[in-house]
Write a protein that binds this DNA or RNA. Structure first.
Lengths: 219, 219
DNA sequence: TGGGGGTATATTGTCGACAATTAAAAGCGT
DNA sequence: ACGCTTTTAATTGTCGACAATATACCCCCA
Protein backbone atom coordinates (compact mmCIF):
# COMPACT_ATOMS: atom_id res chain seq x y z
CA UNK A 1 0.00 0.00 0.00
CA UNK A 2 2.99 2.24 -0.56
CA UNK A 3 3.84 2.71 3.11
CA UNK A 4 5.07 6.26 3.43
CA UNK A 5 7.60 5.35 6.05
CA UNK A 6 8.84 8.53 7.62
CA UNK A 7 12.31 7.93 8.93
CA UNK A 8 13.43 11.44 9.65
CA UNK A 9 11.83 14.05 11.89
CA UNK A 10 11.50 16.27 8.86
CA UNK A 11 9.35 13.59 7.23
CA UNK A 12 7.17 13.23 10.30
CA UNK A 13 6.71 16.98 10.62
CA UNK A 14 5.83 17.24 6.96
CA UNK A 15 3.20 14.52 7.32
CA UNK A 16 1.80 16.12 10.47
CA UNK A 17 1.57 19.51 8.82
CA UNK A 18 0.05 18.09 5.68
CA UNK A 19 -2.57 16.27 7.70
CA UNK A 20 -3.48 19.39 9.63
CA UNK A 21 -3.84 21.39 6.45
CA UNK A 22 -5.92 18.78 4.63
CA UNK A 23 -8.18 18.29 7.63
CA UNK A 24 -8.57 22.02 8.11
CA UNK A 25 -6.94 22.14 11.55
CA UNK A 26 -4.80 24.79 9.92
CA UNK A 27 -7.39 26.70 7.96
CA UNK A 28 -7.29 27.39 4.25
CA UNK A 29 -5.86 30.76 3.34
CA UNK A 30 -4.12 31.27 6.68
CA UNK A 31 -0.53 32.40 6.94
CA UNK A 32 2.15 30.01 8.12
CA UNK A 33 4.44 31.60 10.65
CA UNK A 34 7.67 29.62 10.81
CA UNK A 35 8.59 30.43 14.42
CA UNK A 36 5.07 29.69 15.52
CA UNK A 37 5.00 26.30 13.81
CA UNK A 38 8.48 25.60 15.11
CA UNK A 39 7.16 25.92 18.66
CA UNK A 40 3.92 24.07 17.94
CA UNK A 41 5.56 20.99 16.42
CA UNK A 42 8.63 21.12 18.67
CA UNK A 43 11.20 21.19 15.91
CA UNK A 44 13.67 23.73 14.58
CA UNK A 45 12.74 26.32 12.01
CA UNK A 46 14.90 24.54 9.44
CA UNK A 47 12.60 21.55 9.63
CA UNK A 48 9.53 23.74 9.28
CA UNK A 49 11.02 25.48 6.28
CA UNK A 50 11.79 22.19 4.58
CA UNK A 51 8.26 20.97 5.27
CA UNK A 52 6.78 24.15 3.84
CA UNK A 53 8.83 23.68 0.70
CA UNK A 54 7.45 20.18 0.31
CA UNK A 55 3.93 21.42 0.92
CA UNK A 56 4.43 23.98 -1.80
CA UNK A 57 5.45 21.22 -4.20
CA UNK A 58 2.27 19.38 -3.17
CA UNK A 59 0.16 22.39 -4.18
CA UNK A 60 -1.10 22.85 -0.64
CA UNK A 61 0.82 26.01 0.14
CA UNK A 62 1.89 29.10 -1.75
CA UNK A 63 5.13 30.82 -0.95
CA UNK A 64 6.52 34.26 -1.73
CA UNK A 65 10.12 35.26 -1.19
CA UNK A 66 10.72 37.37 1.90
CA UNK A 67 7.03 37.43 2.65
CA UNK A 68 6.03 33.95 3.67
CA UNK A 69 3.79 31.02 2.97
CA UNK A 70 0.02 30.70 2.98
CA UNK A 71 -2.24 27.72 2.88
CA UNK A 72 -4.00 27.67 -0.47
CA UNK A 73 -7.54 28.96 -0.68
CA UNK A 74 -10.26 26.71 -2.02
CA UNK A 75 -12.10 28.23 -4.95
CA UNK A 76 -14.62 27.11 -7.50
CA UNK A 77 -12.17 27.72 -10.31
CA UNK A 78 -9.37 25.95 -8.45
CA UNK A 79 -11.49 22.84 -8.08
CA UNK A 80 -12.38 22.81 -11.76
CA UNK A 81 -8.76 23.19 -12.82
CA UNK A 82 -7.72 20.47 -10.42
CA UNK A 83 -10.26 18.05 -11.83
CA UNK A 84 -9.25 18.88 -15.38
CA UNK A 85 -5.74 17.70 -14.51
CA UNK A 86 -7.15 14.64 -12.77
CA UNK A 87 -9.20 13.79 -15.83
CA UNK A 88 -6.14 14.06 -17.99
CA UNK A 89 -3.77 12.06 -15.80
CA UNK A 90 -6.16 9.39 -14.56
CA UNK A 91 -7.53 8.91 -18.03
CA UNK A 92 -4.01 8.11 -19.17
CA UNK A 93 -3.52 5.92 -16.11
CA UNK A 94 -6.57 3.85 -17.00
CA UNK A 95 -5.39 3.58 -20.59
CA UNK A 96 -1.96 2.34 -19.50
CA UNK A 97 -3.44 0.07 -16.86
CA UNK A 98 -5.40 -1.77 -19.54
CA UNK A 99 -2.11 -2.68 -21.15
CA UNK A 100 0.29 -2.89 -18.24
CA UNK A 101 -1.59 -4.47 -15.36
CA UNK A 102 -0.72 -8.12 -14.84
CA UNK A 103 -3.49 -10.72 -14.92
CA UNK A 104 -2.94 -11.08 -11.21
CA UNK A 105 -3.45 -7.38 -10.59
CA UNK A 106 -6.61 -7.42 -12.65
CA UNK A 107 -7.95 -10.35 -10.67
CA UNK A 108 -7.35 -8.49 -7.43
CA UNK A 109 -8.98 -5.37 -8.88
CA UNK A 110 -12.12 -7.38 -9.61
CA UNK A 111 -12.05 -8.72 -6.08
CA UNK A 112 -11.86 -5.18 -4.72
CA UNK A 113 -14.89 -4.30 -6.80
CA UNK A 114 -16.84 -7.24 -5.38
CA UNK A 115 -16.06 -6.08 -1.88
CA UNK A 116 -17.47 -2.70 -2.74
CA UNK A 117 -20.54 -4.25 -4.31
CA UNK A 118 -21.45 -5.79 -0.96
CA UNK A 119 -21.00 -2.45 0.75
CA UNK A 120 -23.18 -0.66 -1.77
CA UNK A 121 -25.97 -3.21 -1.51
CA UNK A 122 -25.66 -3.33 2.27
CA UNK A 123 -27.54 -1.13 4.73
CA UNK A 124 -25.26 1.85 5.14
CA UNK A 125 -22.86 2.60 2.36
CA UNK A 126 -19.62 3.67 3.97
CA UNK A 127 -18.30 3.16 0.47
CA UNK A 128 -17.70 6.60 -0.91
CA UNK A 129 -14.50 7.94 0.56
CA UNK A 130 -12.27 4.98 1.36
CA UNK A 131 -13.62 2.75 -1.38
CA UNK A 132 -13.34 5.36 -4.07
CA UNK A 133 -9.80 6.19 -3.03
CA UNK A 134 -8.77 2.54 -3.01
CA UNK A 135 -10.17 2.04 -6.48
CA UNK A 136 -8.41 5.00 -8.01
CA UNK A 137 -5.11 4.19 -6.31
CA UNK A 138 -5.24 0.66 -7.67
CA UNK A 139 -5.62 1.84 -11.24
CA UNK A 140 -3.01 4.55 -10.97
CA UNK A 141 -0.51 2.02 -9.63
CA UNK A 142 -1.61 -0.33 -12.40
CA UNK A 143 -0.34 2.13 -14.99
CA UNK A 144 3.19 1.17 -13.97
CA UNK A 145 4.23 4.70 -14.91
CA UNK A 146 6.37 6.26 -12.20
CA UNK A 147 5.79 9.86 -13.23
CA UNK A 148 2.06 9.38 -13.35
CA UNK A 149 2.02 7.63 -9.98
CA UNK A 150 4.21 10.24 -8.35
CA UNK A 151 2.29 13.22 -9.68
CA UNK A 152 -1.11 11.91 -8.64
CA UNK A 153 -0.02 10.60 -5.26
CA UNK A 154 2.09 13.58 -4.24
CA UNK A 155 0.83 16.59 -6.17
CA UNK A 156 -2.87 16.01 -6.74
CA UNK A 157 -4.63 13.66 -4.37
CA UNK A 158 -3.92 15.48 -1.12
CA UNK A 159 -5.39 18.66 -2.55
CA UNK A 160 -8.37 16.69 -3.84
CA UNK A 161 -8.86 15.29 -0.37
CA UNK A 162 -8.59 18.78 1.11
CA UNK A 163 -11.50 19.90 -1.07
CA UNK A 164 -13.48 16.83 -0.15
CA UNK A 165 -12.92 17.10 3.57
CA UNK A 166 -13.42 20.82 3.89
CA UNK A 167 -16.50 20.95 1.69
CA UNK A 168 -18.04 17.95 3.40
CA UNK A 169 -18.19 15.55 0.50
CA UNK A 170 -19.88 12.32 1.33
CA UNK A 171 -23.08 12.45 -0.46
CA UNK A 172 -25.04 10.42 -2.86
CA UNK A 173 -23.60 9.19 -6.10
CA UNK A 174 -22.49 6.09 -4.24
CA UNK A 175 -24.21 3.47 -6.30
CA UNK A 176 -23.88 5.48 -9.50
CA UNK A 177 -20.13 5.75 -9.03
CA UNK A 178 -19.97 2.05 -8.29
CA UNK A 179 -21.40 1.12 -11.66
CA UNK A 180 -18.99 3.47 -13.36
CA UNK A 181 -16.15 1.74 -11.57
CA UNK A 182 -17.53 -1.58 -12.74
CA UNK A 183 -17.45 -0.53 -16.37
CA UNK A 184 -13.90 0.75 -16.09
CA UNK A 185 -12.73 -2.53 -14.63
CA UNK A 186 -14.52 -4.34 -17.41
CA UNK A 187 -12.66 -2.35 -20.02
CA UNK A 188 -9.34 -3.02 -18.31
CA UNK A 189 -10.15 -6.72 -18.04
CA UNK A 190 -10.86 -6.73 -21.75
CA UNK A 191 -7.51 -5.03 -22.35
CA UNK A 192 -9.22 -2.13 -24.08
CA UNK A 193 -7.09 0.99 -23.46
CA UNK A 194 -9.22 3.41 -25.50
CA UNK A 195 -12.42 2.54 -23.70
CA UNK A 196 -10.79 2.44 -20.28
CA UNK A 197 -9.48 5.95 -20.78
CA UNK A 198 -12.76 7.30 -22.04
CA UNK A 199 -14.76 5.78 -19.20
CA UNK A 200 -12.33 7.03 -16.58
CA UNK A 201 -12.45 10.53 -18.00
CA UNK A 202 -16.22 10.53 -17.94
CA UNK A 203 -16.27 9.13 -14.43
CA UNK A 204 -14.09 11.99 -13.21
CA UNK A 205 -16.06 14.59 -15.14
CA UNK A 206 -19.31 13.39 -13.58
CA UNK A 207 -17.72 13.34 -10.19
CA UNK A 208 -16.65 16.95 -10.62
CA UNK A 209 -20.08 18.11 -11.76
CA UNK A 210 -21.46 16.48 -8.65
CA UNK A 211 -19.08 18.26 -6.33
CA UNK A 212 -19.41 21.51 -8.22
CA UNK A 213 -23.03 21.87 -7.18
CA UNK A 214 -22.02 21.89 -3.54
CA UNK A 215 -19.95 25.01 -3.72
CA UNK A 216 -21.78 27.52 -5.76
CA UNK A 217 -21.16 29.67 -2.72
CA UNK A 218 -17.41 29.72 -3.28
CA UNK A 219 -16.56 32.46 -5.72
CA UNK B 1 8.08 35.11 -21.21
CA UNK B 2 7.42 34.18 -17.58
CA UNK B 3 10.55 35.80 -16.21
CA UNK B 4 11.73 33.47 -13.47
CA UNK B 5 13.04 36.33 -11.42
CA UNK B 6 15.34 34.88 -8.83
CA UNK B 7 15.36 37.24 -5.90
CA UNK B 8 17.06 35.13 -3.28
CA UNK B 9 20.45 33.42 -3.43
CA UNK B 10 18.64 30.15 -2.93
CA UNK B 11 16.73 30.79 -6.14
CA UNK B 12 19.87 31.63 -8.06
CA UNK B 13 21.67 28.56 -6.78
CA UNK B 14 18.72 26.38 -7.70
CA UNK B 15 18.68 27.78 -11.23
CA UNK B 16 22.45 27.35 -11.58
CA UNK B 17 22.29 23.77 -10.38
CA UNK B 18 19.34 22.96 -12.58
CA UNK B 19 21.12 24.36 -15.58
CA UNK B 20 24.24 22.35 -14.89
CA UNK B 21 22.23 19.17 -14.52
CA UNK B 22 20.16 19.70 -17.66
CA UNK B 23 23.22 20.58 -19.70
CA UNK B 24 25.13 17.62 -18.36
CA UNK B 25 27.84 19.67 -16.65
CA UNK B 26 26.84 17.58 -13.66
CA UNK B 27 26.46 14.20 -15.25
CA UNK B 28 23.38 12.00 -15.09
CA UNK B 29 23.46 9.40 -12.36
CA UNK B 30 26.19 11.13 -10.37
CA UNK B 31 25.94 11.66 -6.64
CA UNK B 32 25.41 15.14 -5.24
CA UNK B 33 27.69 15.85 -2.32
CA UNK B 34 26.30 18.73 -0.30
CA UNK B 35 29.59 20.02 1.11
CA UNK B 36 31.19 19.79 -2.29
CA UNK B 37 28.41 21.76 -3.97
CA UNK B 38 28.44 24.22 -1.09
CA UNK B 39 32.09 25.01 -1.89
CA UNK B 40 31.54 25.00 -5.65
CA UNK B 41 28.63 27.45 -5.65
CA UNK B 42 29.93 29.49 -2.72
CA UNK B 43 26.85 29.16 -0.56
CA UNK B 44 25.99 27.44 2.69
CA UNK B 45 24.88 23.83 2.84
CA UNK B 46 21.39 24.96 3.82
CA UNK B 47 21.02 26.62 0.44
CA UNK B 48 22.28 23.54 -1.34
CA UNK B 49 19.87 21.34 0.55
CA UNK B 50 16.94 23.56 -0.32
CA UNK B 51 18.00 23.52 -3.97
CA UNK B 52 18.27 19.75 -3.97
CA UNK B 53 14.78 19.50 -2.55
CA UNK B 54 13.47 21.63 -5.36
CA UNK B 55 15.36 19.60 -7.92
CA UNK B 56 13.76 16.49 -6.51
CA UNK B 57 10.33 18.05 -6.98
CA UNK B 58 11.35 18.80 -10.57
CA UNK B 59 12.11 15.11 -11.17
CA UNK B 60 15.76 15.86 -11.88
CA UNK B 61 17.16 14.34 -8.70
CA UNK B 62 16.35 11.37 -6.49
CA UNK B 63 16.88 11.55 -2.78
CA UNK B 64 17.11 8.95 -0.06
CA UNK B 65 17.06 9.72 3.64
CA UNK B 66 20.45 9.59 5.31
CA UNK B 67 22.07 8.50 2.08
CA UNK B 68 21.92 11.42 -0.29
CA UNK B 69 20.79 12.65 -3.64
CA UNK B 70 21.65 11.50 -7.15
CA UNK B 71 21.00 13.03 -10.50
CA UNK B 72 18.42 10.91 -12.31
CA UNK B 73 19.62 8.45 -14.91
CA UNK B 74 18.28 8.65 -18.43
CA UNK B 75 16.69 5.42 -19.58
CA UNK B 76 14.63 4.24 -22.48
CA UNK B 77 11.74 3.41 -20.19
CA UNK B 78 12.05 6.73 -18.38
CA UNK B 79 11.74 8.61 -21.64
CA UNK B 80 8.66 6.68 -22.68
CA UNK B 81 6.95 7.25 -19.35
CA UNK B 82 7.83 10.94 -19.48
CA UNK B 83 6.29 11.31 -22.91
CA UNK B 84 3.17 9.45 -21.86
CA UNK B 85 2.64 12.10 -19.21
CA UNK B 86 3.41 14.82 -21.71
CA UNK B 87 0.86 13.39 -24.11
CA UNK B 88 -1.74 13.35 -21.39
CA UNK B 89 -1.13 16.85 -20.03
CA UNK B 90 -0.41 18.66 -23.27
CA UNK B 91 -3.35 17.00 -24.93
CA UNK B 92 -5.55 18.46 -22.23
CA UNK B 93 -3.75 21.79 -22.57
CA UNK B 94 -4.57 21.93 -26.27
CA UNK B 95 -8.17 21.01 -25.56
CA UNK B 96 -8.52 23.77 -22.99
CA UNK B 97 -6.63 26.26 -25.16
CA UNK B 98 -9.22 25.80 -27.90
CA UNK B 99 -11.82 27.05 -25.46
CA UNK B 100 -9.91 29.42 -23.22
CA UNK B 101 -7.45 31.30 -25.42
CA UNK B 102 -8.58 34.81 -26.25
CA UNK B 103 -8.94 35.85 -29.88
CA UNK B 104 -5.90 38.01 -29.31
CA UNK B 105 -3.84 35.09 -28.08
CA UNK B 106 -4.89 33.01 -31.06
CA UNK B 107 -3.89 35.78 -33.43
CA UNK B 108 -0.45 35.94 -31.86
CA UNK B 109 -0.16 32.16 -32.01
CA UNK B 110 -0.79 32.28 -35.76
CA UNK B 111 1.86 34.99 -36.07
CA UNK B 112 4.35 32.78 -34.24
CA UNK B 113 3.59 30.00 -36.69
CA UNK B 114 4.24 32.30 -39.65
CA UNK B 115 7.61 33.21 -38.20
CA UNK B 116 8.47 29.54 -38.01
CA UNK B 117 7.26 28.95 -41.55
CA UNK B 118 9.88 31.36 -42.83
CA UNK B 119 12.56 29.58 -40.84
CA UNK B 120 11.53 26.19 -42.16
CA UNK B 121 11.50 27.32 -45.75
CA UNK B 122 14.76 29.22 -45.29
CA UNK B 123 18.25 27.85 -45.84
CA UNK B 124 19.20 26.52 -42.44
CA UNK B 125 16.39 25.51 -40.15
CA UNK B 126 17.42 26.57 -36.68
CA UNK B 127 13.79 25.93 -35.95
CA UNK B 128 13.70 22.72 -33.94
CA UNK B 129 14.65 23.51 -30.37
CA UNK B 130 13.68 27.10 -29.69
CA UNK B 131 10.74 27.15 -32.06
CA UNK B 132 9.25 23.95 -30.81
CA UNK B 133 9.60 25.06 -27.21
CA UNK B 134 7.98 28.43 -27.93
CA UNK B 135 5.06 26.76 -29.63
CA UNK B 136 4.36 24.32 -26.83
CA UNK B 137 4.74 26.98 -24.13
CA UNK B 138 2.25 29.18 -25.90
CA UNK B 139 -0.40 26.49 -25.95
CA UNK B 140 0.18 25.40 -22.39
CA UNK B 141 -0.18 28.98 -21.20
CA UNK B 142 -3.27 29.25 -23.41
CA UNK B 143 -4.97 26.56 -21.36
CA UNK B 144 -5.30 29.12 -18.55
CA UNK B 145 -5.09 26.22 -16.11
CA UNK B 146 -2.62 26.97 -13.32
CA UNK B 147 -2.04 23.36 -12.31
CA UNK B 148 -1.39 22.30 -15.87
CA UNK B 149 0.96 25.21 -16.46
CA UNK B 150 2.85 24.64 -13.25
CA UNK B 151 3.26 20.89 -13.73
CA UNK B 152 4.55 21.15 -17.26
CA UNK B 153 6.80 24.13 -16.67
CA UNK B 154 8.30 22.96 -13.39
CA UNK B 155 8.00 19.19 -13.29
CA UNK B 156 8.21 18.01 -16.90
CA UNK B 157 9.88 20.32 -19.36
CA UNK B 158 13.28 20.56 -17.72
CA UNK B 159 13.57 16.79 -17.71
CA UNK B 160 12.44 16.69 -21.32
CA UNK B 161 15.12 19.20 -22.16
CA UNK B 162 17.68 17.13 -20.28
CA UNK B 163 16.89 14.15 -22.49
CA UNK B 164 17.06 16.31 -25.59
CA UNK B 165 20.34 17.95 -24.73
CA UNK B 166 22.14 14.88 -23.49
CA UNK B 167 21.00 12.64 -26.33
CA UNK B 168 21.82 15.28 -28.93
CA UNK B 169 18.36 15.86 -30.33
CA UNK B 170 18.35 18.20 -33.27
CA UNK B 171 17.57 16.16 -36.20
CA UNK B 172 15.13 15.98 -38.97
CA UNK B 173 11.43 16.09 -38.40
CA UNK B 174 11.67 19.86 -38.66
CA UNK B 175 9.26 20.40 -41.52
CA UNK B 176 7.08 17.47 -40.52
CA UNK B 177 6.67 18.86 -37.02
CA UNK B 178 5.91 22.26 -38.47
CA UNK B 179 2.90 20.99 -40.37
CA UNK B 180 1.67 19.21 -37.28
CA UNK B 181 1.90 22.49 -35.41
CA UNK B 182 -0.03 24.15 -38.19
CA UNK B 183 -2.91 21.70 -37.90
CA UNK B 184 -3.06 22.11 -34.15
CA UNK B 185 -3.27 25.88 -34.47
CA UNK B 186 -5.99 25.44 -37.05
CA UNK B 187 -8.05 23.34 -34.67
CA UNK B 188 -7.60 25.90 -31.89
CA UNK B 189 -8.53 28.73 -34.24
CA UNK B 190 -11.69 26.81 -35.13
CA UNK B 191 -12.44 26.42 -31.43
CA UNK B 192 -12.46 22.64 -31.77
CA UNK B 193 -11.27 21.17 -28.43
CA UNK B 194 -11.65 17.51 -29.38
CA UNK B 195 -9.57 17.82 -32.52
CA UNK B 196 -6.96 20.05 -30.88
CA UNK B 197 -6.42 17.45 -28.17
CA UNK B 198 -6.23 14.56 -30.59
CA UNK B 199 -3.75 16.32 -32.88
CA UNK B 200 -1.55 17.38 -29.97
CA UNK B 201 -1.49 13.85 -28.61
CA UNK B 202 -0.49 12.47 -31.97
CA UNK B 203 2.13 15.14 -32.41
CA UNK B 204 3.76 14.19 -29.13
CA UNK B 205 3.49 10.48 -29.85
CA UNK B 206 5.25 10.92 -33.19
CA UNK B 207 7.88 13.07 -31.57
CA UNK B 208 8.56 10.33 -29.04
CA UNK B 209 8.82 7.60 -31.64
CA UNK B 210 11.33 9.78 -33.42
CA UNK B 211 13.49 10.27 -30.37
CA UNK B 212 13.10 6.67 -29.33
CA UNK B 213 15.07 5.49 -32.33
CA UNK B 214 18.08 7.47 -31.20
CA UNK B 215 18.55 5.65 -27.96
CA UNK B 216 18.15 1.99 -28.59
CA UNK B 217 21.52 1.86 -26.88
CA UNK B 218 20.09 2.97 -23.54
CA UNK B 219 18.75 -0.02 -21.70
C1' DT C 1 43.24 -16.03 2.77
C1' DG C 2 38.52 -14.86 3.47
C1' DG C 3 34.93 -13.22 6.47
C1' DG C 4 32.96 -10.77 10.62
C1' DG C 5 33.17 -7.25 13.96
C1' DG C 6 34.42 -3.03 15.38
C1' DT C 7 36.43 1.42 14.91
C1' DA C 8 37.27 5.60 12.20
C1' DT C 9 35.77 8.67 8.61
C1' DA C 10 32.69 10.90 5.66
C1' DT C 11 28.04 12.53 4.83
C1' DT C 12 23.51 13.81 5.95
C1' DG C 13 20.16 15.61 9.50
C1' DT C 14 19.14 19.09 12.97
C1' DC C 15 19.78 23.11 15.55
C1' DG C 16 20.33 28.02 17.31
C1' DA C 17 22.23 32.51 16.09
C1' DC C 18 22.98 36.33 12.98
C1' DA C 19 21.82 39.11 8.62
C1' DA C 20 18.55 41.02 5.44
C1' DT C 21 14.10 42.25 4.25
C1' DT C 22 9.44 43.56 5.06
C1' DA C 23 5.65 45.28 7.75
C1' DA C 24 4.23 48.22 11.62
C1' DA C 25 4.64 52.14 14.56
C1' DA C 26 6.18 56.47 15.87
C1' DG C 27 7.45 61.07 14.94
C1' DC C 28 7.29 65.25 12.29
C1' DG C 29 5.68 69.04 9.53
C1' DT C 30 2.10 71.20 7.16
C1' DA D 1 -6.03 65.83 11.37
C1' DC D 2 -3.60 64.07 7.40
C1' DG D 3 0.33 62.48 4.82
C1' DC D 4 5.16 61.69 4.57
C1' DT D 5 9.59 60.18 6.60
C1' DT D 6 12.14 57.75 9.97
C1' DT D 7 12.56 54.37 13.35
C1' DT D 8 11.30 50.10 15.50
C1' DA D 9 9.64 45.41 15.59
C1' DA D 10 8.59 41.09 13.44
C1' DT D 11 9.55 37.65 9.94
C1' DT D 12 12.16 35.40 6.55
C1' DG D 13 16.82 34.22 4.56
C1' DT D 14 21.48 32.54 5.41
C1' DC D 15 25.11 30.66 7.93
C1' DG D 16 28.38 27.61 10.70
C1' DA D 17 28.48 24.12 14.33
C1' DC D 18 26.96 19.89 16.47
C1' DA D 19 24.41 15.27 16.37
C1' DA D 20 23.06 11.08 14.12
C1' DT D 21 23.50 7.94 10.53
C1' DA D 22 25.79 5.36 6.95
C1' DT D 23 30.04 4.08 4.58
C1' DA D 24 34.87 2.64 4.43
C1' DC D 25 38.66 0.84 6.48
C1' DC D 26 41.30 -1.94 9.53
C1' DC D 27 42.12 -5.51 12.58
C1' DC D 28 41.42 -9.91 14.34
C1' DC D 29 40.26 -14.66 13.99
C1' DA D 30 39.15 -19.03 11.96
Amino acid sequence: MLAENAVTTSDKTFLALRGDIVDGAISAGSKLNESELSAKYQVSRAIIRESINRLEAANLVERKANIGAKVVTLTHQGLIQLYQVRESLEGMAARLAATNMSDNEITRLNQLLNTHAEDVMGPQSYYQEAGDVDFHYRIVLGSHNQHLISMLMHNIYHLVRMYRVQLGMAGPRVTTAFYEHQHIVQAISNRDPELAEMLMRRHITYSMKNIENKLRNLQ
